[in-house]
């Protein structure tokens, strides 16, 4: 809500749009009604003060929430600039006593780090595209053709989310190996799609639900086929939702650890496994681990910033249905 919002300045707007005839008699009215005006002004000031204090309270709550959510990442970031002895200080310190970039040099200079970044990107991109390609038509079909089998299908998709990944990780690794896909990003992408696809279908279903059927019918009347209406009318409307779904699918793959641990070796190891390798039986290199984790989070932060508007639009899309 902007400061020029009429809902905030109701009386002023009324006064400026007042007809001229009324304007001439206004002083008299005001003079004869001095106590009431004062009371109104006091009342308005009280309301303004109340709004100000509410806003301050909201800002405080917002700041507290931001600190609560952001602190772990900030701590990670600060730790990545600490010297080795600072990282293990007892009691721990938040800010580095001495700032250093050595951890970044060590982490990025480690063999296999660059390759792991490329592998992570490949895997996440393929997995995201696979998820969208499968989830968009599946969700559209489920929401537009409300059949019993569709309902069973979407529930079944939800149930697959309840299976612990470790239970399917080992069979999946064996299957990929038998298919000749062992230690390839495509195998890992397929595995990651099993995680992101159910969520993608559910998300896309809620976005499609929010799109009035009238839009498609109008497009059909104008000569579009069913698929044409989906492509030309519905998908542009839910583009924010697709962006949200893509972000979730990308993040699910980008940060996934267990399948990457079980299914990758020399060629396709992803960065989460490399980050975990800083914890060894002989000690934990906090500095390098946090430095690599900080670098690894940059692409995701950039992606989120890039798609911010789409995400906000997508988040509110489901809220206007009905």
């Amino acid at each position: 809500m902007s400061l020029a919002d009429p809902r905030l300045h109701g009386p002023a707007v009324t006064e400026t749009t007042m007809p001229t005839s009324t304007m001439t008699s206004a002083p008299k009215t005001r003079a004869s009604n001095g106590n009431g005006t004062r009371r109104r002004r006091h009342h308005a000031e009280g309301l303004e003060a109340g709004k100000r204090s509410t806003r301050t309270l909201l800002w405080i709550l917002l700041a507290a929430a931001m600190i609560f959510y952001g602190f772990p990442f900030l701590y990670l970031l600060f730790t990545s600039f600490k010297t080795p002895i600072d990282t293990i200080a007892v009691p721990p310190t938040i800010l580095p006593r001495e700032w250093t970039l050595e951890n970044y040099t060590n982490a990025l200079g480690r063999s296999g780090v660059l390759a792991s970044f490329i592998n992570s990107a490949q895997t996440a991109i393929i997995s995201t595209v696979l998820s969208l390609v499968l989830a968009v038509p599946a969700a559209y079909g489920i929401t537009r053709y409300k059949t019993p089998s569709g309902r069973v299908f979407i529930m079944a998709a939800l149930v697959t989310r309840m299976v612990p990944p470790v239970a399917i990780g080992i069979p999946l690794a064996s299957m990929m190996s038998a298919a000749g896909l062992a230690d390839t990003p495509i195998a890992l992408s397929i595995a990651h799609t099993t995680i992101s696809l159910p969520l993608s279908i559910w998300l896309m279903s809620s976005f499609f639900e929010a799109v009035p059927k009238d839009l498609e019918e109008a497009a059909t009347v104008d000569g579009c086929s069913r698929l044409g209406a989906l492509w030309r009318v519905v998908i542009p409307v839910v583009s924010g939702g697709i962006a949200v779904t893509a972000i979730f699918a990308f993040l699910a793959s980008w940060n996934e650890f267990l399948f990457a641990l079980l299914m990758t070796a020399v060629r396709s190891q992803t960065t989460p496994v490399v980050i975990a390798n800083f914890q060894t039986q002989f000690g934990l290199d906090w500095g390098s681990m946090t430095a690599l984790a900080a670098v690894y989070s940059i692409p995701v932060i950039l992606l989120t910033l890039l798609l911010q508007r789409k995400i906000v639009a997508g988040m509110t899309l489901g809220a206007v249905k009905g």
Partner: peptide, 30 residues
């Protein structure tokens, strides 16, 4: 990504089928 997927970025071989290459699985600290 799909083109690059053929070999992955970590290296050309994944199993020790090549006669002169040996893959050694090791804990990171070792």
């Amino acid at each position: 990504a799909l083109v690059a997927t053929g070999c992955g970025a970590g290296g050309p071989t994944s199993s020790g089928s090549a006669a002169s290459t040996v893959n050694v699985l090791v804990e990171a600290g070792g």
